[in-house]
């Protein structure tokens, strides 16, 4: 019971962080059709900016300023570079963000060095919120969950209930009509791109100190958020939420389970020895493969339901 509760909490909080990361990516993709390969790099920039700003001032200032700065950078990139490649098609757009991820990585290493920086959790949020059986639940994890849920709620409100949201939605489906109505569609796109980058940066601000702020952090999450987006269904925010939570919880529980094929086969009366064909596969424990489960899930999902959980198009 203890293990179950703790694992569930851990899984959900990790899943929510994944959602924060993939929300921006999904948003940009669904609105502009651009897969931002550098999305995880903006996440990293968020963490580094937050580290730098909190060194100068404090965490709370960084919490506000870092995402804004990254959003501005993202918007500038959209206006100066990405927009130029729009006419060459989606492959060029993907490539340009791919190149950007290289450049950001190098620049981060140039400015902050190649070893981890000491980006600390603020004192007010350090420590444990409550004790559950023997383990403690850190306050900061709870804070992360609150921020993620808050972000989800405000995202929903902005998109569904405000005028800006309506314009954004209109610009997506009917860009020409929206333009004819006097709205600046390119500016809407820049706004969306900046917003998506800002969301990634926000995830970086709260993920950077919960985990570790170092140059490898972008690559570490880069592939997994792509999995979230594909499994959730390309361009679906709701799907991304479900997929993030699914992956978070699944990974967390898998770590705790020492199941392997050998155990399963033996309970079925099949004897497996090191001489059996494929022994290296049968002996693997579920806990050992936990971190790559998302990729397995991706493969299974593509075979069973190529359009993803909430996807609408079957490309």
């Amino acid at each position: 019971m203890e293990f179950f509760t703790i694992s569930l909490l851990n899984g959900v909080s990790y899943g929510l962080l994944l959602f924060m990361l993939s929300a921006g990516l999904t948003l940009i993709f669904s609105m502009m059709g651009v897969l931002n390969f550098a999305h995880a790099s903006f996440y990293m920039l968020g963490a580094y900016f937050a580290y730098q700003v909190s060194e100068w001032t404090n965490f709370w200032v960084a919490f506000v300023i870092a995402p804004v700065l990254v959003a501005l950078l993202g918007g500038a990139f959209e206006r100066t570079v990405l927009r130029k490649t729009h006419k060459f098609g989606h492959v060029a757009e993907l490539l340009v963000t791919f190149g950007l991820s290289f450049v950001i990585l190098e620049l981060v290493q140039l400015v902050w060095g190649r070893t981890p920086v000491e980006y600390k959790v603020p004192a007010a949020l350090d420590g444990s919120l409550f004790k559950l059986f023997n383990s403690t639940f850190p306050t900061y994890r709870a804070f992360m969950m609150v921020v993620a849920i808050g972000m989800l709620a405000s995202l929903f409100l902005v998109l569904k209930k405000t005028r800006i949201g309506l314009v954004i939605q209109a610009a997506l489906t009917h860009p020409d009509t929206t333009e004819a109505l006097g709205h600046n569609v390119p500016r809407v796109f820049a706004f969306v791109f900046a917003g998506g980058c800002g969301l990634a940066a926000l995830a970086g601000v709260i993920g950077g100190n919960a985990f570790i702020t170092e140059p490898g952090m972008a690559q570490a999450v880069g592939a997994i958020i792509f999995v979230v987006v594909v499994v959730g269904g390309m361009g679906s925010l709701g799907g991304a939420l479900i997929a993030s939570l699914l992956i978070g919880v699944m990974q967390t529980f898998a770590v705790g389970l020492d199941w392997s094929f050998i155990g399963g086969l033996q309970s079925l009366g099949v004897d497996v020895t090191p001489e059996t064909f494929g022994y290296p596969v049968w002996k693997l424990k579920l806990s050992q493969v936990a971190p790559i489960l998302p990729y397995l899930l991706l493969v299974v999902m593509l075979v069973v339901r190529p359009k993803g959980i909430m996807g609408t198009r079957d490309e």
């Binding site: 694992s7 383990s135 990974q251 705790g256 971190p291």
Partner: peptide, 21 residues
Amino acid sequence: NELHPLGQVKDFAPYIAKMMA
């Protein structure tokens, strides 16, 4: 006696939970 993939784990909380359990 646990092995995890190199550099793939972002969140070690589940491993700690398992150790405590």
